[in-house]
Computed example of a mutant assay.
Amino acid sequence: MFEITRTHTRNYVAALWAGFLGGNISSFVKWGTENPMPPRTPDRAIPPAEMLQDMGFKVNEMIYHYSGHIVNWGVAGIHHLFSIGFAMFYCLVAEVFPAIKLWQGAAFAILVTLGFHGVMLPLFHWAPPLWQLPFDELLSETLGHILWMWTIEIVRRDIRNRITKKPDPEYQ
């Protein structure tokens, strides 16, 4: 289960590139899950907005207009950067510890959900504790994170295999 790959089979450049691409694409997948299944009740602020405000940013001024809509680029940017950062981390770790790919990344997605929504967000008072969240929010975030990470895994595998012309390190 906790197998480590052989050093000569790893390709960190391919992993970083796959993570960058997968993080960008999967960010839109995560946003896409939030349209049919909003992740929080309308009376609560979006955690990235709370985070930016705590860091001294004027979140309500971080906007642009697109097709008659007001879009908050600060909140969108935080989500997007987190997606890229986690995807690059995931892809790098997958080069060494293939167990991170359990259930095509779904296990890692569940850990991210628990880590952020169960620990980080409540710790900084950006969201209520996990046990106080409505079922709808837990479902939206969990399913959204699983689809987000599965997208990263699909991109990771494809990009890595296209670059290296070889299977994943644990199969070499």
Rank of each mutant, 00 (worst) to 15 (best):
M1A: 12
M1H: 12
F2T: 06
F2L: 12
R6Q: 15
H8Y: 12
T9P: 02
R10M: 02
Y12T: 03
V13H: 05
V13I: 13
A14E: 03
A14R: 05
G19N: 05
F20A: 10
F20P: 03
L21S: 02
G22V: 05
G23L: 04
N24R: 00
N24I: 10
N24V: 08
S26F: 03
S27R: 04
S27P: 00
S27D: 06
V29G: 01
G32L: 04
M37T: 05
M37R: 00
P38W: 07
P38N: 07
R40C: 01
P42K: 09
D43T: 10
D43A: 10
A45T: 10
I46L: 11
I46H: 14
P48D: 11
A49H: 12
M51A: 15
D54W: 07
M55N: 09
M55S: 14
G56N: 08
K58D: 15
N60C: 06
N60M: 12
N60R: 15
E61Y: 14
M62Q: 15
Y66N: 13
S67W: 14
G68D: 13
G68N: 12
G68M: 11
G68S: 10
H69G: 06
V75C: 08
H79N: 14
H80V: 01
L81K: 04
F82N: 07
G85A: 14
F86H: 09
M88C: 09
F89T: 05
F89S: 04
C91A: 11
L92H: 00
L92C: 10
V93T: 03
V96F: 04
F97N: 05
P98T: 00
A99H: 02
A99Y: 04
I100H: 02
L102M: 07
W103C: 08
Q104C: 06
Q104T: 03
G105C: 02
A107V: 15
F108R: 00
I110G: 06
T113K: 13
L114P: 04
G115H: 09
F116G: 11
F116N: 13
M120K: 09
M120S: 10
P122F: 10
L123T: 14
H125G: 13
A127G: 06
P128A: 15
P129C: 06
L130I: 10
W131L: 06
Q132K: 12
P134N: 07
F135P: 01
L139D: 03
S140R: 02
H145S: 14
L147R: 02
L147W: 12
W148Q: 08
M149T: 08
W150P: 00
T151H: 03
V155M: 06
R157P: 01
D158M: 13
I159Q: 09
N161R: 15
I163T: 03
I163A: 01
K165N: 08
K165Y: 01
K166V: 00
P167H: 11
D168E: 13
